[in-house]
Amino acid sequence: MVKVLFVCLGNICRSPMAEAIFRDKVKKENLQHIISTDSAGTGNWHIGNSPHEGTLDILGEHQINCENIIARQVEEKDLQDFNYIIAMDASNLGNLHRLKGFKESGEVFRLLDLMNDLSIEDVPDPYFTGNFVEVYDLVDKGCEKLLSYIKKKESLSI
């Protein structure tokens, strides 16, 4: 099983959005038996909470299922358990690298690192900007690129 973890700050906006979008894309390609996805935050403020209302609304508009997504904090063991750990911004990436005993077993990078045609490198945090539409568009395109990258890297086909 190829395991993908999306990471943001509080795990209520960007990373659960990415988890739901990526899971939807994986399911549409009938790869859910090969690729699993999860999300977590580097902070502990929202542990146990559902995704932010703005995230729920935008996912609902696009008919993307986000059931069973509950905020949690990233743990050291995640760094060994997941093949791909995808940070939403440079700060999240830095927080991952500062985890005690940081030893990842897979690849760790930002979602937008796969998109060379953008003028930004980080997915903005809609918790502060309020712009869930912009974040959805970036995450959707990023997840599309990520799925293509993983399929090629892991030699997966439909």
Rank of each mutant, 00 (worst) to 15 (best):
D89K: 15
N44I: 02
I158W: 07
G43C: 03
L118I: 14
L147T: 08
V74W: 09
E76K: 13
C66D: 07
H33L: 01
S50W: 00
I21S: 09
F6N: 10
L59V: 01
K151D: 05
T55M: 00
F132R: 10
Y127L: 06
T55P: 13
R72P: 14
Y84N: 13
F22N: 07
R98A: 13
F128Y: 15
K28T: 08
S155V: 06
L9E: 04
V7F: 02
N11F: 02
R110G: 04
T42C: 00
G101R: 11
F102I: 08
I35N: 03
D117S: 14
S105I: 05
P126W: 07
E107P: 01
E121D: 04
H62K: 14
K100D: 14
A40N: 04
F22H: 09
Y136H: 15
G54T: 02
Y127R: 13
H62Q: 06
I120V: 10
D38V: 00
G48K: 08
S157R: 08
I120F: 11
V135W: 05
E61G: 06
D117F: 14
N92S: 12
E134V: 07
P124S: 14
T55D: 03
Q63M: 04
M88F: 08
E19Q: 14
K77R: 14
V74K: 11
G101M: 11
V123Y: 12
L112R: 15
V108H: 03
N65A: 03
D78N: 15
Y149M: 04
S50E: 03
V133F: 04
G43K: 03
E107L: 11
G10E: 06
N83P: 08
V7Y: 09
E104K: 15
L111T: 10
G94C: 14
A87L: 09
L31F: 04
N92P: 07
K145Y: 10
K27S: 01
Q73M: 11
N92D: 11
L59S: 06
D89Q: 14
R14I: 05
W45R: 04
F132H: 05
E121Y: 07
L56E: 05
L99Q: 13
M115C: 15
L111M: 12
L5S: 09
D38E: 09
F132W: 09
T37G: 06
V26R: 12
G94W: 12
E53Q: 08
C8T: 09
G41R: 02
N83F: 02
L147N: 05
L96A: 08
T55K: 04
P16A: 02
S105Y: 13
N11G: 12
R72N: 12
Q63E: 08
A87K: 14
P16M: 02
N44M: 01
I12H: 10
A40F: 00
G94H: 15
F22M: 00
M115P: 01
R14S: 12
E67H: 09
K153Y: 04
H33Y: 05
G10T: 11
A71Y: 05
E104P: 15
K152C: 08
N49K: 10
H33M: 01
L147F: 03
L56W: 00
M1L: 05
V74Y: 10
D117W: 13
H62I: 01
N68L: 00
L99Y: 06
K28F: 00
I58C: 00
A20R: 12
A40H: 03
R110S: 11
T42L: 00
K145W: 04
S105R: 15
I86V: 13
I64W: 01
N116V: 06
P124N: 13
L56N: 01
L99E: 04
Y149A: 04
